[in-house]
Structures are given as C-alpha cells and as structure tokens.
Design a protein around this nucleic acid. Structure first.
Length: 170
DNA sequence: ACCCCGATCGTA
DNA sequence: ACGATCGGGGTT
C-alpha cells in the first residue's frame, strides 16, 4: 500500500493545531507504520518547557528551521524523543510524538516517547531529516478520525498550566 | 573545566 | 517512590 506524505503546509500551521491534527495520522518510518495516538506541543521562546526557551543552541537549532523536519534529541542519557518542527522559520516550535499504535510489521503499542524511539531505532542520526516527500520517513493522512482530549504535558516542571498534551480516545 | 538536571522508564 | 545514566547548557 502506498501513502502520500502530508504537505509541508500541514506543519506550518499553529503548533496546537498540528499537535491535535497529528492524532490518527499514519507515521511511516522504514518498515514501521503506526497511528499517532498522543502528542505534545512545545511552542516558542515564551514556553518555559520548550527547549528553545533558552535560545538557539546547537541542540535546538533545528527547531528554528523550516517546518516538516524531525527534531530528535537524547534525554536522561538513555532515551531519544521524536518531534516534528512546526510553524515559520525562526519561530522555534515542535510537536513531540509520545505514543504510536504500531500496525506494521507487528501490532504493538508504543506508549511513551522513549520507548517509541527505542523500538523504531530512532536516534540523533535522524535529527534534522526532512519528512516531506521522503518515501522512508513521513506522515500520511489515511482518513482516520479519533476523538481527542487534552491534559497538561508530562514530565515537565514548568508550563504545567498549559493543556498542551493531546491524547486520542481509545 | 565543572556541575546540575532533564519533554523517561522500569522496578518497587 | 526512586534509581539508572550521560549529554547539554549554564556557569566559573
């Protein structure tokens, strides 16, 4: 089955819209295919939980770039987290992919950003990859509709007042 | 050069 | 509830 990559304009929208609209989309990465079921938005230098809140650094540089690229970073010395850059150039924002309902090659729930990257073999080698127009790493709309609820983001100590985590109802 | 801490996870 | 584990960013 062939799927068509979302256009870059999908990721150039406001990050909260992108985070919500990514739920139910199909993530394709090499031999893996899975529905995105949980996301979080990290939005700009004024969001204290966003890595870019402390300005542009070698790590966060990708967040300041063009939408539709992967931002993959190491966390806690042992895990990686996958994000997609959103919004305009020089507006640093991204959506964290927190869970994936894998359907290929084996059905499997990847609930947690670290577990997700570990299972997919995703690491810093994938940081900065363009996910628009690739046939190995992209996101596709397959017409799946899911109802969504929001909560504060997980694992942060600042910005807990913002309900910027988006979860698909099972 | 050094120190602190983190967008996590598995075990208890 | 807590320890593992280490890169990055801020500070000296």
């Amino acid at each position: 089955m062939n799927f068509e990559s979302l256009p870059r304009s999908f990721f150039e929208q406001p990050t909260l819209e992108v985070a919500e609209n990514l739920l139910g989309k199909l993530l394709v990465f090499n031999e893996f295919q899975g529905y995105i079921t949980e996301t979080e938005a990290y939005i700009g230098v004024d969001d204290p939980a966003c890595h870019a809140a402390r300005g542009k650094t070698p790590r966060t540089e990708i967040m300041f770039g063009k939408a539709g690229h992967a931002y993959v970073y190491m966390i806690y010395g042992m895990y990686h987290c996958l994000n997609f850059v959103t919004e305009a150039v020089d507006f640093p924002a991204a959506v964290l992919i927190r869970s994936l309902q894998l359907i290929k090659p084996e059905p499997h729930l990847l609930d947690g950003p670290g577990k997700l990257c570990r299972h997919l073999g995703m690491n810093k080698n994938h940081n900065g990859l363009d996910i628009i127009g690739s046939d190995k790493f992209f996101v596709a709309d397959v017409g799946k509709k899911l109802s969504v609820f929001t909560t504060p983001r997980i694992g942060i100590k600042q910005g807990l007042d913002k309900p910027w985590r988006f979860v698909a109802q099972v």
